[in-house]
Amino acid sequence: MSKRIVCLRHGQTLWNVEKRFQGHSDIPLDETGLAQAARAASLLASLRPTMIVSSDLQRANDTALALGRLIGLDVTVDKDFRERGGGQWEGLTRDEIATRWPEEYAAWEAPDGEPVTDVATRVSAAMRRWAAKLDDEGLLVVASHGAALRLGICEILGLPEELWPALGGLGNCSWSVLQEGRKGWRLLEHNAGTLPEPVSSDDKPEA
């Protein structure tokens, strides 16, 4: 075995249900999200994680804490695992965004928002930084956000930006698994944990 990273998206929030762009807004898990976090924790516990790190936003941190409490591991917070900043879009629904900013919506580039390349760089760098602290057979769980994780995964796999749309989004409390090999990181699983269903996320609509 070698080092692995489980990329766990947070549980459902009210803004997910309402299809609002959350970004850096600190929105809590709703009742369904808390149940999702408990279920994910019960499944991921069997992998015997050795380290848990989360975004500083409570929806991700509370998802991580559900696992940490179950297996007796502390959760470390790293703001580099935050969601993509949404600028003027935060708190707005997709319909509102499409109406007010049709061109920006088509490109999925929020006014005053964070560029996707910046998100990919900071999240993948944080993944590498924390993975470097693992023992050779360690398993890191990163509790983060839909767009942040997908972009970070694309970057750590070395995919060129034009191929990033080929990787679909992550559902609430679903996860992807990365494994370090001799030639870098590879994707073992993607969007695991539930049967495929529509994804409500700050990620691109097609993701």
Score class of each variant (00 low, 15 high):
Asp78Pro: 05
Leu73Phe: 07
Val141Lys: 10
Val75Ser: 13
Asp136Ser: 15
Leu43Gln: 15
Gly152Leu: 00
Leu44Gly: 11
Ala106Gly: 06
Val141Tyr: 11
Ile52Glu: 12
Glu114His: 03
Gly68Asn: 13
Glu109Cys: 00
Ile156Gly: 05
Leu139Asn: 10
Trp130Ile: 00
Lys133Tyr: 07
Ala60His: 06
Leu34His: 12
Ala110Thr: 02
Trp89Tyr: 10
Arg129Cys: 09
Thr32Leu: 14
Arg129Gln: 11
Glu137Phe: 08
Ala131Val: 12
Asp80Arg: 02
Cys154Gln: 14
Ser46Gln: 15
Trp130Gln: 01
Thr32Trp: 04
Val116Tyr: 12
Gly113His: 04
Arg129Gly: 05
Gly91Arg: 07
Thr32Gly: 08
Asp80Thr: 03
Pro49Ile: 13
Asp95Lys: 09
Lys79Tyr: 10
Leu47Cys: 09
Arg122Glu: 02
Leu57Ala: 04
Leu34Ala: 11
Asp118Val: 06
Thr117Lys: 15
Ala40Pro: 11
Arg59Leu: 07
Arg150Tyr: 07
Val123Glu: 00
Pro102Asp: 04
Gly72Ala: 05
Arg59Asn: 01
Ile71Phe: 01
Ala132Thr: 04
Asp136Gly: 00
Phe81Pro: 09
Gly152Thr: 02
Leu139Gly: 09
Ile153Gly: 07
Arg59Glu: 02
Val77Met: 11
Gly138Phe: 08
Phe81Gln: 14
Arg128His: 12
Leu65Thr: 14
Ser55Phe: 08
Asp95Pro: 07
Leu65Asp: 11
Met127Asn: 07
Ala125Glu: 03
Gly87Met: 00
Arg94Val: 04
Gly158Gln: 13
Gln58Cys: 05
Leu73Ile: 09
Pro102Leu: 03
Ala110Leu: 05
Ser55Met: 10
Arg100Ile: 00
Glu31Arg: 06
Phe81Asp: 02
Leu157Asn: 15
Gln36Thr: 09
Ser124Arg: 14
Ser54Tyr: 04
Pro160Ala: 14
Asp118Trp: 08
Arg94Gln: 15
Ala166Ser: 15
Gln88Pro: 03
Asp78Ser: 05
Glu104Ala: 01
Ala106Val: 08
Leu34Cys: 09
Asp56Lys: 00
Thr32Arg: 15
Ala125Gln: 07
Asp135Tyr: 04
Gly85Met: 09
Gln88Gly: 07
Ser144Gly: 13
Ala41Asp: 11
Gly87Ile: 01
Glu155Met: 06
Gly138Trp: 12
Asp74Gly: 09
Ser54Asp: 03
Glu155Cys: 05
Ala148Pro: 08
Pro111Arg: 08
Phe81Ala: 10
Ala125Ser: 15
Ala37Thr: 04
Ala40Asp: 13
Ser144Met: 04
Glu109Ala: 02
Ala148Thr: 09
Trp130Gly: 02
Lys79Asn: 13
Gly68Ser: 11
Leu34Trp: 11
Glu161Pro: 08
Trp130Arg: 06
Trp101Ser: 10
Ser144Gln: 08
His145Met: 06
Ala107Ile: 03
Ser54Leu: 01
Ala110Val: 00
Gly85Ser: 01
Thr99Phe: 10
Leu57Gly: 03
Thr50Cys: 00
Ile153Thr: 14
Glu114Ala: 12
Glu83Tyr: 05
Ala166Pro: 02
Arg94Cys: 01
Ala64Phe: 11
Asp112Gly: 01
Ala126Thr: 09
Ala120Ser: 14
Ile156Leu: 13
Gly86Arg: 03
Leu47Pro: 06
Ala126Arg: 04
Cys154Pro: 11
Leu140Ser: 06
Leu149Gly: 07
Lys133Gly: 07
Cys154Met: 15
Ala110Pro: 11
Ala107Met: 02
Ser124Asn: 12
Ala37His: 03
Val119Asp: 06
Val141Ser: 12
